[in-house]
Design a protein around this nucleic acid. Sequence first.
DNA 1: CGATGAGTTGTTAGA
DNA 2: TTCTAACAACTCATC
Length: 658
Amino acid sequence: MVPAKPRVLYWFRTDLRLHDSPALKAALDLKPECLYPIWCWDPHYVYRARVGPNRWQYLLDCQSDLSASITKLNPKSKLFVLREAPQTVLAKLFKAWKISHLVFEKDTDAYARQRDEDVIKQAEEAGVEVIVKMGRTLYDPDELVKANGGKPTMSITQVQHAAEKLDEVAKPVPTPESLPDPGNASLDFEHTPPSPKPDFNDIQRIDMESSYTHLAGPEGDFGVPTLSELGLKPATTQHRGGETLALRALDEIISNKTYTATFAKPATAPTAFDPQSTTLLSPHHHFGSLSVRLFYWRVMDVLKEYKGKQSTIPTNLIGQLLFRDMYFGAQTALGYSFAQTHGNSHCRFIPWHLPSKVDPSNGLVTGDHHIDSPEAETWFDRWKWGKTGFPWIDALMRQLRQEGWIHHLGRHAVACFLTRGGCYIDWERGAEVFEEWLIDHEVSCNSGNWQWLSCTAFYSQFYRCYSPIAFPKKTDAKGDFVRHFCPELKDYPEKFIYEPWKAPVADQKKAGCLIKGDGQETEDGGMKVYPKPMFDFNARRSICLDAMKSAYHINLYGDNLKVKDGTWRELFPDSAEGPTEGKSAKDAINGEETGKKTRPKRGEEASGDMGVDQDEGEAAEVGGETKGGDQEGKSPGKRKRKGQGTLDAHFGGKRTKK
DNA sequence: CGATGAGTTGTTAGA
DNA sequence: TTCTAACAACTCATC
């Protein structure tokens, strides 16, 4: 009996490329009778994740380019976009298209794992064989974590040591030269449009979201959707996606051997924008339109040949990829909790303003936040919309909104400003804005970088704080970057470009822009207006510094029971920055989720000690990581403190003792 | 175990 | 202009 030839569903997700795709190669190695290249238009990303027009456009670029490349290899084929959740549509396709194999690239963020587990189960039930191949990172995050003793990778040293135990980074696999025909794409089954509520992107839509009206799209041709179907405004970014552009960009970078071999991230200018000083490959890596392993080996080839002085890990290009793998490893080990403080065993708890609301039924943030301080809410709003009155911060936030990309150090500057170095606002608020606006947004990297900058994980030198005035001067004394993104300030003298409020009114008038108000008005009697700074930066920096010092001494992590039940407040001095005290603040925050509604308690010990709760479950994912000792041994009492001053006074009797 | 040096990416004053 | 030290002080890796 001759076995039937395989009929393969190749499910594209964040691997929108034909080159160096181990999963696609595995699909083709089956020598299938037919291969359907498909994409599921997943409602999770349409409604439940924050995605703005710029990243959507980038995705559509990637899909269109991929579809055209598929058609080039086989005129009968293309990318078949199905407007339905993978969790509901795939099982129907298995049947309707008589599928024998489902093949896809492994994805490791918390949602992706849950989704894929669900789909794999359905495939097994349908008798469909599933093939999953890694191709998204240098190392398989699961293996990396395993090699790191089952613990999340929290430093580059850990990544390097773990990587030494693994095989070397996989060499790129060849790009296919032909593709099998797709089979008959009949849609002889019921379409299940998703529920549009809740819609996290509702506020962005200028029109009804209508991408789910037909399974194969409005033309019935499985075509790539449009922004207008999503009810979104057109993209404003000039950065375009797609494998063709990605490979061209890669060639250009690699052709400049000196740039490639001497690249040192901290030395690149965050003020450079035309052209930018870094590679801008991150969005290609995010969508998989450029293989990180291809990039790795192309860079390694240059490093092997280059005779001059080279930059090294971690500042060189290879180091950048290692950081990416580090965040993937941390996310993999911690699951959903990695993207939030609540329940996160490796993220410090700081009593930030505007903390997230948490759903007590699952311990996950709801997407909404508490307004413990109306002032902080105003600061957050002004930060988001580029109206803080600090030109460097505002220019960056406007570039981010318009173009969907800012330099890594620019991200440092605005993140530090929002959290530990200015507003003392929860990093999760900032991460949400980045999630919406960045074209290269990646859950693990975004969460990781925000934790880094807010000094809640990965990094702890909170006394190193970016100044919105001194920092940009280092690479852009003239203020060209600010003049471009805050054009109302373009005629300001160099002397005042980063602190325009210091310009005498006569100079303000001469430059055609008055410094006044809080960002509401943009014009006054025919003269442009730029807001006054929303606070005294140096005063805020010192308040934040003291607050961070205090929170570090109190030393709570996101999985601590006191963090979970709200009793952390008892440990903080009443005068501490953040929602630590005051009847109204306490009611506003405690009322809803702690109150008398007790969360399920298991093994809880109300001893007042830093109990370590292991019931969140994420750790099980990596084979029962236990970190019971984590908070032990870090007790504040062990720490030597030589300063006297105000701070110690606050601690009197407040610190927990062991 | 304690001590020491390093840690991708700070700022400022003063030489 | 470019360099250094002081600022105040964190965790991690290594010896």
